[in-house]
Structures are given as C-alpha cells and as structure tokens.
Design a protein around this nucleic acid. Structure first.
Lengths: 127, 127
DNA sequence: ACTGAAATCAGTAATCATTACTATTTTGTA
DNA sequence: TACAAAATAGTAATGATTACTGATTTCAGT
C-alpha cells in the first residue's frame, strides 16, 4: 500500500500550484489534458483525493455542490461571490476564538471549524 | 405564480418541525411517506426548496455532500460529528464580528458567512 | 539492467443526490 | 360550479463523483 510516484499526480499538483482561483476537478482535468492529452477524469479525481488525504492540497466545499481544490494549504479563509461564483482568498486575522465560544455550552469535543464568507466581489459590484 | 396551499407541503413542514436532527430530503421522504404513502420524492425536494426560498426552513450544507434541512430558522450554529455524522445544534454567543474581521482587507462586499464546527460528539467520545 | 509484485492508469460503467418533464389532479377564485 | 393556475406522482435526465477492470508503470531486490 506504499505510495508510488506517478507522473500524472505530479502534473496535477504542478498545475494546481499555478492557480489561485480554486479550480474544480473538471477544470483541473481540462487544463491538465492540454499537456497530458489522455489522462482520464477518474485519475484526476483519484489523485486530487489522494493529495488531499496526504495534506498536500485542500479540498474546499463552498456550498455550490462542487468540490474545489487549493494548493495553498496554509490556514486561510475564502470568500464566494454570490453573483459570479468565484472563490477568492481572504487575508485576515485568525478567528480561532470562535471554537472556544462554540465549545462553551457543548459537551462534545470541537476539533475545528469550517467558515466561508459570501457576498458580492469587487468586480461584480463595480458593474 | 401565486403560491397555493398544498397538503403535501404542510405535511412536510409539520414533519420537519418535529425533528431537531436536521434530516436530509431522503429522510423526510421516507418518514412523510408513512402517513402520506404515495407522496413522491420530487414533491419532497420541490417543497423543501420552496420552503427554504420562502424562509420558512433552512437548507444546511455541512460538507457531507447531502443537503440537510432545519425547521428552526433562528440564528444558530451547527456541529457535525466526524464519527457518526450527526448534525447537532449549538447554543452559542453571536460571532458576527468575524465578518468585520474578514472585511478589513477585502474590497468586495461581505454579506454573511457560513460556519460549522466539527469534532467528536459526546456520544461517540464516551464509547 | 532485469524481474516481479504492488501501485497506478485509461476507459467505461455505476452510483447517488438532485432537477426536469409531463400528463393528471388539486386548489382557490369569480 | 367552472375554470385557469399551481401542484402532484411518476419517471427520465443530469451532473458530480466513485467503482471496476484489464493493461501499464513504478521500484525494490536481485
């Protein structure tokens, strides 16, 4: 069950690292296909899942029914434009205190939180 | 386009109000079916969407790939157990200041946020 | 470099949640 | 009561994702 190197996985990760717009599996597929014409969609899904499980990338669920992927695994937050659907990185101070607030009246063990922000992006507002 | 009363929609909402575990459309369907044996799954989906659009219920996307529904439309947060998948209400103080924090270095208009917490629920931890 | 078992792949079929379609039934109003 | 609009049941279609399978690739041990 050891993980072996694969050219496909490398190409997928390399591509993802060039993008900062959090592409979906399908976008990864059509782009990677340009330089690796017969890679299959299943391979893209399998490797995105594998990379996410290994912690090398992050899977983003932003409520639009499609998974997005992010090569930036550093702790940060996302904004989703309700108009154009774009997923944008937010540079912001840490808000981990909300976990403490949430835990105050709860008897389970809170390990983390998922937060994303939504509204209208600068681009859409200026039109 | 006026909305007409429908017995099915009423039954769906009545059922949802008896539950505090945030059931999925399918769970609503199988339960409502007990007292309304030939209601169709499409009707359940259509009415859940309609009720959510009217603001009478809330659609919850907690990242498990399935929509959950909540008859409690008051402002509150949710905890999802990573082990059993249960969605539990959290009574907690308001954390709306995170929207201000997020907006500090962002040039779009942030209208709101989606936050849910995850970890191990009390039940699963005690096993 | 060569070999073989394990991992990975391409291609395709299957799954699962959800939405769309259509002919029929229900609702509410005039 | 009559009739147009809205809603329904049942089924087909969609779209994202996962599973399957026989062929190919990787790599550790020779």
């Amino acid at each position: 069950m050891a993980i072996k190197h694969s050219r496909q996985r490398q190409v997928i990760k390399d591509f993802l690292m060039t993008r900062h717009d959090h592409p979906t599996a399908d976008v990864v597929y059509t782009n990677v296909r340009q330089e690796y014409p017969n890679i299959s969609l299943g391979t893209v899904y399998r490797n995105l899942t594998l990379l996410a499980d290994m912690g090398e990338i992050t899977r983003l669920r932003v409520g639009d029914g499609v998974d997005h992927f992010d090569a930036d695994t550093s702790r940060h937050y996302h904004f989703i434009c309700s108009k154009c659907g774009q997923v944008i990185d937010l540079k912001m101070n840490n808000i981990d205190d909300i976990v403490d607030i949430a835990g105050m009246n709860f008897n389970g063990e809170i390990q983390g939180h998922m937060t994303y922000f939504y509204g209208i992006c600068g681009n859409c507002r200026d039109k």
